[in-house]
C-alpha cells in the first residue's frame, strides 16, 4: 500500500531522473559556473589595477558578486527548461498520466530542482568569492570579513529563487520560447543603463532581479543616490521570495485549470 509520503517521494524521484538524464542540465549549470567564477576573476583583476579613491570607497564584495548578474542567465534558462521542456517535447501528457494530481507533479518537480540549485549555488558563490578576492590582491578580503558570509548566503538564495521564479513563469506560459522572451528582457531591464534613469528606476528597482542586488552589495554604499535602494538587503530578499511565490502560484493555477 502506498502512503502519501511514498507518492511525494516517487514524484520527486521521477523528476530527479528527468533532470539528470538531459544534457542541458549539465551544460547550463557548467556555463553558469564558468561565467560566475571566470568573470569574478576578471573583475577582481580589473579593480586590483585601479587606484583607491578615498571619496568613493571601494567594496570588495561588489567584485565578488557582480559576475552573478551574468552567471544567472544560464540558470534562468535551466529554470525555464525544467517545465518548458515538458511542453515543447510533449512529455507533459505522459507526465500527468503518470502523476495525475497536478499539485503533486508540480511539487515533485520543484522539490527535485531546489536541492540541485541550492547545492550548485553554495559551491559557485563561495568559489566566485574566493577567486575574486584572490584576484584583488591586497585589496581582497577573507571569508571572515564583515558581511561576507551574509552576502554569500544571500547570493546563494538569490540564484535559487530567481531560477524557481523562472520555472514558475514557464509553467504559467506553458513553454520555453515565450518564457525566455519575457524573462531575459525583464532581467536586463534593470541592470542595463535604463535602470539608472530616475523615473524608470522607481519601478525597475522592484523587479525580481533588482530586489536581490542589495544583499549582494551591487547597489553601491548605503545612501548612494544613483544605485541606492529604499529597502534593506533582507527586505529585498523577502520581496524576491514574494515574486517567486507569486510566479509559482500562478504556475500552479495554470497547471490545474488548463487542459494538458
Amino acid at each position: 500500500m502506498s502512503t502519501p509520503a511514498d507518492a511525494v517521494r516517487a514524484a520527486i524521484a521521477a523528476e530527479w531522473v528527468k533532470l539528470r538524464t538531459v544534457r542541458s542540465t549539465f551544460w547550463l549549470l557548467l556555463l553558469a559556473f564558468a561565467l560566475s567564477v571566470g568573470l569574478a576573476h576578471l573583475i577582481g583583476l580589473t579593480f586590483a589595477d585601479m587606484k583607491p579613491d578615498p571619496e568613493r570607497p571601494f567594496d570588495p564584495l561588489f567584485a565578488a558578486f557582480y559576475s552573478l548578474t551574468l552567471g544567472q542567465l544560464p540558470l534562468v534558462a535551466f529554470g525555464v527548461l525544467v517545465m518548458g521542456g515538458e511542453y515543447s517535447s510533449g512529455t507533459i501528457r505522459p507526465s500527468l498520466a503518470a502523476v495525475p494530481r497536478r499539485g503533486l507533479f508540480y511539487g515533485g518537480k520543484l522539490l527535485a530542482e531546489v536541492p540541485l540549485l541550492l547545492g550548485f549555488s553554495l559551491v559557485t558563490v563561495p568559489v566566485a568569492f574566493l577567486v575574486s578576492q584572490a584576484a584583488l590582491g591586497p585589496q581582497g578580503v577573507s571569508v571572515g570579513a564583515d558581511g561576507a558570509v551574509e552576502a554569500m548566503i544571500g547570493a546563494s538564495l538569490y540564484l535559487t529563487l530567481i531560477t524557481l521564479f523562472s520555472t514558475g513563469v514557464a509553467t504559467m506560459l506553458r513553454g520555453s520560447a515565450l518564457s525566455l522572451g519575457v524573462l531575459l528582457p525583464l532581467l536586463f531591464l534593470g541592470s542595463q543603463g535604463l535602470g539608472n534613469i530616475p523615473k524608470v528606476k522607481t519601478v525597475t528597482q522592484f523587479l525580481p532581479d533588482q530586489v536581490g542586488m542589495v544583499v549582494m552589495h551591487l547597489t553601491g554604499p548605503p545612501g548612494d543616490p544613483r544605485f541606492g535602494r529604499p529597502y534593506g538587503p533582507w527586505t529585498g530578499m523577502a520581496l524576491l521570495a514574494l515574486w517567486t511565490a507569486a510566479a509559482l502560484l500562478g504556475g500552479h493555477l495554470a497547471l490545474r485549470r488548463r487542459d494538458a
Binding site: 521521477a14 538524464t21 544534457r23 542541458s24 517535447s89 512529455t91 507526465s95 502523476v99
Partner: peptide, 19 residues
Amino acid sequence: AVHAGRSARHHLLWLARSN
C-alpha cells in the same frame, strides 16, 4: 511525446520511478 535528448531507457526509468 518523448524528450528528444533523453534515451529510451531513461524515459522509461522516470515513468517507473513516478509510480
